[in-house]
Design a protein around this nucleic acid. Sequence first.
DNA 1: CCCCCCCC
Length: 424
Amino acid sequence: METEIEFANECVLLNSLRRSDSQWIIKVLLIQCGVVKEFKNKINQGLRWTLIFVDEEGTKMQAILFTDQVNMWKEHLEQGSIYYIINGRINDRKPNFQSVHKEFEIVHTCILVKVNASIGDGNRKRREIALMNERCDRQTVTLWGEIAEKDGDMLQNMIFEKPIVVLCNVKGTTYRGNFVISTTHVSSVMINPSFEKAIALQNWHNRMKLQDKDITLMPSRLIKNARKVKIGDITHADSFDNTKDTYRKFNTKIKYIINKDDPWYLSCNKCYKKVSLVDNIATCPRCGSNVEYEERYLLKLELFDEKEHCYITLFEATKYLLGCDVKTYVRSISQKKEESKYYRKLVSSKDKEFTFLVKLDPRIGGDRTGRSLIAEELHEVGKVDAIEIEDDEIKAAKTIKKIKQIEEENDASINHKRIKIEKD
DNA sequence: CCCCCCCC
């Protein structure tokens, strides 16, 4: 295969290959296949295919195939397989473009729990997914460009099996106080890979499934660690400190379910605003007509905690109350809603006590009368506290203890060797 | 020989 390889950094060039080498062979794992794209400029036109490989030392490199090579290889190369590349052309790394190899590389191994619809076209195409780890922390990831197109579609088709997803060379950004991970042009996505951490997570997930536990309904570390308050502490607060600690939880009864018959709406995929349907054409008040849309939960509740009452809105969090995703719910009530176990669960939640998690918005202060809160998460009272909290301090202490133990063992073995040598 | 920091 004749191909162009852009190396990540010069070390690789020195260690395993030199640009001047005319004959070489390298063993690589294909970790990311792009989408075959057509290109056209003043001089050339044809097909382009971007691949990302990793060698046995863990160094990543990008390879580009052009028209003839694309046609020759497109049916044969497979993500996750091992190949030998023989005698490719090696280019220097181009400083204006992203390097495949990062000085700091974060690898995320998580369970896929949600895939949103994709938005936009070409390089602007994006698709949000949600991942979860063994501590039930949710993490939103935005897939971009070819990864949104190819891997995103693959993930959407697999969402019901909740595969393990590994992300390499992704970047983190903060938007409105939320940490969001985004893919870049050098990111790679692996689905159900066979390395230790991924298998351990898969085993954990299998154990949960055997206990009939849906991990997407389990209390997250966020709600476990959130500061516990009364409703009045939130509704009567003049303003909120602009700190990182913006989550609060409170226990309260559901006094009234305001829209129990239609706890969802048709939402614009791009901006989440409610679309209106006329002759099957959806119009979004913000994005215009003929937009893509899907059902989205929206449940409004009135709460009462003996002292205060307030209104709260549940979007995605409705799932915690009903136990299923919105599409399953809508399907379940399409015939006789009284026969839907999810509908019955919704109705029976009235007068029950729940722990609600809300996020404080530092921009909103003062008079909040009439303004409803938005729930991030909720569980029946007792379910949150029942689970043992292993906070970071305890974990850190354990790690230190472990390290000391290992050091002592090493010391002992070193001493033992010394003794042995002396005896000899 | 191609192409790059996007969006709510």
